[in-house]
Design a protein around this nucleic acid. Sequence first.
DNA 1: ATAATAGGTAGGAAATCTCCTACCTGTCTA
DNA 2: TAGACAGGTAGGAGATTTCCTACCTATTAT
Lengths: 105, 105
Amino acid sequence: MAQTDEVFAALSSPVRRDVLRLLLDGPKPVQELAEHFDMRRPSLSEHLRVLREAGLVSERRSGRYRLYSLEAEPLRMVSDWLSPYERFWRQKLAGLRDLLDEEPL
Amino acid sequence: MAQTDEVFAALSSPVRRDVLRLLLDGPKPVQELAEHFDMRRPSLSEHLRVLREAGLVSERRSGRYRLYSLEAEPLRMVSDWLSPYERFWRQKLAGLRDLLDEEPL
DNA sequence: ATAATAGGTAGGAAATCTCCTACCTGTCTA
DNA sequence: TAGACAGGTAGGAGATTTCCTACCTATTAT
C-alpha cells in the first residue's frame, strides 16, 4: 500500500501529472508517452518508477512493449485526505458569492 | 497564485500535513504548533515558509506572536485536478461491490 | 543467427530539501 | 531601559531528486 507521502510527492511533478493524464485514455507503451516530453527515455523511466512505487500506475509486458496503465486507487486516498478541508474552500466561495450579491446589476 | 507543483510538494511532507490538520481548529501561534513536532523551531519555520509560499497558510502578526491560519483555496485546485480520475476509483469500488454481491450470505 | 527495437539499470553532476546551530529583530515586562 | 520571549534568517551538512550518457536485457524481424 502506497504511503500518502509518496503519492503527493509523485504528483508534485508536472511530468508525472501529464503521464497520468495521458493514461486517462487507456494503457500506453513507454515510447508513446515519451513523445510528449522533452527528455531522454531513461529520465522518463525514472518518473515511471516513481509513479509505480506510489501505486499510481501499473506495468504489463506485451511482447517487447511494456504497457503502463493508470491505477487511480491512491487518488481516492488523496480525495479522502482533502475532505475535512472542503468546507473551508466552499465557505470562501460562499463568501465571494455573498459579496457579489451585495453588488446588484 | 500558487503553482500546482508547489501545492503538491508542500503536501508531500507529513509535518506540513499535520500543521494543516492542527489549523483546522483555528489560527495558532508557532509555539503551539511546535509542541507537536520533534524538531527545532527554525526547521518548523522553514516548513511554514513552504506552506506560505504554496498559499496554504497565511500569517498575521499579533503582538510578539504570529498567528498562522489555514488557507484552503489551493486545495480546491487539488480537488479540481482529481475530478477526471474520480470515475476510475469509483469504478474500482463498484467492481469490488459486484464481486461481493456474487457471494451472497 | 544477427540486427534492430523497447525499455530498463548504473553511476555521476547539479540542484533542492530538510535538518541543524548560531544569530538577528521585534515586542512585552520588571 | 534591560532582560526575556516569539520567531525569523544565514549558512552548512547530508540526503534526495532529476537530469544526463553509457550500457544491459529481452523480444522481434531479416
